[in-house]
Amino acid sequence: MTNFSFLLPVLALSISLVFAVDASTLQDFCVTNPIGQGNSECKDPKLVGANDFFFSGIHIAGNTTNPSGSKVTPVFASQLPGLNTLGISIARIDIAPWGINPPHTHPRATEIFTVLEGTLEVGFITSNPDNRHFTKVLQKGDVFVFPIGLIHYQRNIGYDNVVALVALSSQNPGVITIGNAVFGATPEISSDVLTKAFQLDKNTINYLQSKF
């Protein structure tokens, strides 16, 4: 009985670790059919080819002519069907001078961020109650990690374009951009809720909602 009691927390930890990552498979691969994000229906292995594991275009600069001055080029399971069940993905990030990749979270992935060109400030905020802000200026060749689920951002603080390559621990990490989610929800969140939450007047909340 004593030995069994000792095994219970070990078993619980093992189960939690199993469910802490993307679903796995008992075969070499499970190419999605049709292309999707974690579709359980696998393409017939006899019909799978090299192109199912191939993506071209990560070298192409993203269009940063938008209010944020940034562009993310994702390579998730929806773009690269061979990623299905493999638990990884990548993305290219382009940020114009003084542009930002706005505060956001990836609910299903830790992100490791590598600077290929440029200089930028990055940061993330820990969960309640501390809400500690970790920030760092990165140069070409530097690497920074954003823990799963935490709000983070990047800002170009130089006069040249920033190019970064990120790897994520999910085939479909998800993205929740804070401003869009809070002020651009459909249907919108009641302005009464937002005025109390952000301690702002209703006119300011209405203006922010109109922007998103």
Rank of each mutant, 00 (worst) to 15 (best):
K71C: 11
L47M: 09
R92S: 08
G99V: 12
L47N: 10
E41T: 11
G49S: 08
K71N: 14
S40Q: 13
L47G: 00
L26C: 05
G87K: 09
T32M: 03
W98I: 01
F54N: 01
K43S: 07
K43R: 12
N101R: 06
W98R: 02
F54K: 07
L26K: 03
I58E: 01
G62C: 12
P34Y: 13
N101T: 09
K43I: 04
N33L: 00
V75E: 05
P102F: 02
V31G: 11
G49C: 12
P81S: 14
D94E: 12
G69K: 00
F54Q: 02
H106W: 12
Q37V: 09
S78E: 14
G82P: 06
H104R: 11
G49N: 14
G62R: 01
K71I: 00
I100C: 02
S40L: 13
P107M: 11
F76T: 07
E41Y: 10
N51A: 14
T65C: 01
N63E: 15
L86N: 04
T73S: 13
I90W: 15
N66F: 15
D44W: 08
P102K: 01
P81M: 02
P67M: 05
H106E: 02
T85H: 04
F29R: 00
T85M: 06
I58Q: 12
I90L: 11
N39I: 13
I88A: 07
T32V: 04
S56L: 11
N33Q: 03
T32D: 15
G38M: 08
L47W: 01
T65P: 01
F53G: 03
G38C: 07
L80W: 09
H59W: 05
K71Q: 13
L83F: 15
S89H: 14
I93A: 08
P97I: 06
N66C: 12
S70K: 00
F54M: 05
N39T: 13
A91V: 05
P107A: 04
P67L: 09
I58G: 00
P81N: 04
T65F: 13
C42F: 12
P102C: 03
G36F: 11
I58L: 15
G69D: 13
P107E: 06
T85K: 11
L26F: 12
F55V: 13
G57L: 11
P45F: 15
T64W: 08
V48L: 02
P97Q: 09
D94M: 04
G87Y: 12
L80N: 08
R108Y: 15
P74G: 05
L86G: 00
E41Q: 08
Q79G: 03
D94K: 00
Q79H: 09
P45L: 10
K71M: 14
G99S: 05
H59A: 06
Q27K: 12
S40H: 10
D94R: 07
P97E: 10
D52S: 08
P81G: 14
N84E: 13
P107C: 03
G36N: 11
L47V: 05
G69E: 09
V75R: 00
N66P: 10
S70N: 06
I88P: 02
P102I: 10
R92E: 13
F29C: 00
H104S: 06
S89T: 06
G69Q: 07
H106S: 12
I35M: 06
H104G: 03
I60Y: 04
K43P: 01
G49W: 02
K46I: 11
F53I: 06
G62V: 14
I88C: 03
I95G: 04
T85N: 11
T65S: 15
D28I: 01
F29P: 00
F55I: 11
F55S: 00
T65Q: 14
